[in-house]
């Protein structure tokens, strides 16, 4: 006689069908992939923006062409001298009048000079210091009273708060996705148990251990979860690629991998979804079946 395959002893192929459960798990994985993509993109963009914003330094010098406190040249020149020797200040650039006009155009119109207002000179720079800018501000005040020094720390803090709340939302969505996936597997398993209760009672009576029966359910749930999640995750790839393409101007090309135009962190994290779905499927099926079996002697 030919060697025989041990096969589907409990009839789980019919009771835990390969249609509804994988589709629902796939849908959950699709959502999880998008959420994960959103959370990682948010974190990545926030890191980039926070770095740029926190280090931005803006210095306004009123009456820039008046003599400085020491009467040793203009106030603007005195400020520039201090900035040029301060190692924490880099790329100090005096904005041209045209740029200043462009910045204030929404409030004062395109020809601010015509209004006869005494506009300050504006210097932009990068702040590399680890502490605050109060010492620099005091030095500049000494040579050019009324000079204002501002960094983007406040905006960086706001971006951080926004990022944290978005990540919390993503975590909540992932939690709900896990909860729904767990419920779907539990309901499917209970439905399978209801269909197969006579078979299971017989197998139990023939000496099957609880672990034998629960293990078979778990193995089936693992495969269905893995397959469904793999499908859902693969379906999410083109959507994520499209979203990454939309976000590319904000992220910068160096943050994207060559494949699918997605951040490497996301590409490394996505395979965890099918693995997690398989784990959820296996553990949920095991616990559900073992709980049900407690009713048998």
């Amino acid at each position: 006689m030919m060697a025989r395959r041990r096969g589907d002893l409990l009839g789980l192929r019919a009771a835990l069908s390969d249609r509804l459960l994988p589709v629902l798990v796939g849908a959950m994985s699709f959502l999880a992939a998008l959420t994960l993509g959103g959370a990682l993109a948010c974190s990545s963009l926030a890191t980039s923006w926070q770095g740029d914003t926190a280090s931005a330094l803006t210095i306004q010098v009123p009456q820039p062409n008046d003599p400085d406190a020491a009467n040793d040249g203009t106030r603007l020149a005195a400020v520039q001298r201090i900035l040029s020797v301060d190692h924490d200040v880099q790329n100090a650039t005096v904005l041209s009048q045209a740029k200043i006009n462009k910045l204030i155009a929404p409030w004062l119109g395109s020809d601010a000079a015509a209004l006869g207002l005494a506009l300050p000179a504006v210097i932009t720079a990068q702040w590399r210091g680890v502490s605050g800018t109060s010492t620099l501000a005091a030095q500049l005040q000494a040579v050019s009273p009324g000079t204002l020094v501002k960094t983007g720390a406040l905006w960086a803090e706001r971006v951080a708060t926004l990022t944290t709340s978005l990540q919390a939302c993503a975590l909540a969505v992932l939690f709900i996705v896990v909860l729904v996936a767990t419920s779907v597997v539990a309901v499917a398993t209970r439905s399978g148990l209801a269909q197969l209760h006579e078979t299971i009672e017989t197998v139990h009576g023939l000496g099957a251990l609880d672990s034998d029966i629960a293990g078979r359910f778990a193995a089936r749930a693992i495969w269905l979860g893995l397959g469904g999640s793999l499908g859902g995750t693969l379906l999410a790839l083109p959507v994520l690629t499209w979203l990454a393409w939309l976000a590319a101007p904000f992220a910068g090309p160096v943050r994207l991998s060559g494949y699918f135009n997605l951040p490497p962190t996301l590409l490394a994290t996505l395979p965890l979804l099918p693995a997690s779905a398989a784990l959820i499927g296996g553990v949920t099926a095991q616990l559900t079946v073992r709980g049900w079996l407690r009713r048998l002697p």
Binding site: G7, D8, L9, L10, G11, A14, E198, T199, E201, T202, V203, H204, G205, L206, G207, A208, L209, D210, P297
Partner: peptide, 24 residues
């Protein structure tokens, strides 16, 4: 429960209603 299962393996049972598994 485990010992009961192992004990059942040493007992052969012919059920009145046969209880054959329909898918096998």
């Amino acid at each position: 429960r485990r010992e009961a299962a192992l004990l059942r393996r040493r007992i052969g049972v012919v059920y009145q209603d046969f209880r054959l598994l329909p898918q096998l």
